[in-house]
Design a binder for these strands. Structure first.
Lengths: 127, 127
DNA sequence: CCAACTGTAATCAAGACAATTACATTTAAG
DNA sequence: CTTAAATGTAATTGTCTTGATTACAGTTGG
């Protein structure tokens, strides 16, 4: 996404993007699909196809990207069945769900404070 | 840890703890080692052995437990080598490290606000 | 028409991690 | 002192996740 934000006009192919993160084009395309679903980018098929940002980099927050591509929670909850004889065990799922949920919100709040434009600015900086 | 905090006097064996989270005693013992290293609990070998909290539940924060047992970062950084020809690619590791670091701090700050005592209180509550 | 793309499914390989087994060591209790 | 019940810890196995890869149908600009 930072690469796309770096030259917001350009339509960049999955091949080029994959090379820049040193992975396979198909992996990138799968991510691009998720980002498109979130309406962060638009993609074009055919020759000279590829992806391009749909919003200005200063209107895209990291939380948007996080929500689009990250499926697993920061704190996963134990899905095994509780021990019926144990009062603590029986309550833990609901208790930990609450902790997990609020932690997720803390992360999202933090990521709401960072824009793609900021990252691009860092690309231009010295250090 | 909530189970230990529920009856802070009792020395509880890995067998009992494992049953309450529906897993294997050895898995629990490995976690207990990490918690002991963090000085959150003490363990006793031999018959009638097991684990017990070393501090009062209201002095143990979830961040302490998180630091003790969680090794993987919330946002892992891409460890592959960058594409030398690409300016963005070359800068991304340092940029994302910064994002990952601050996100980690956000999580830890949140977890610093929750104590084991609070979780125990929830165990006692109706809903 | 064709070359260069995307979209997508299917398969494969690698790595992570829990579960399990095994056993040496420790300790309380009888 | 002996024994039963624990921990500490290594080794192994199985499962699951995930990225990499291959393959191919569909799309589009030149």
């Amino acid at each position: 996404m930072t690469a796309l934000a770096f030259s917001p006009e350009e339509v960049m192919g999955s091949q080029k993007l994959a090379a820049s993160v040193n992975t396979n084009p198909v992996v990138v395309r799968r991510l691009l699909l998720a980002l498109r679903r979130a309406r962060l980018i638009e993609t074009f098929a055919g020759k000279r196809g590829g992806a391009r940002l749909r919003k200005k980099p200063n209107r895209i927050f990291l939380v948007d990207i996080y929500d689009a591509v990250e499926s697993r929670p920061v704190i996963p909850i134990n899905e095994r069945k509780a021990l019926k004889e144990c009062h603590v065990s029986c309550k833990m799922k609901s208790i930990m769900s609450c902790v997990a949920e609020s932690t997720e919100q803390a992360v999202r709040k933090h990521l709401r404070g960072i824009t793609l434009a900021q990252l691009v600015r860092k690309v231009h900086h010295r250090r």
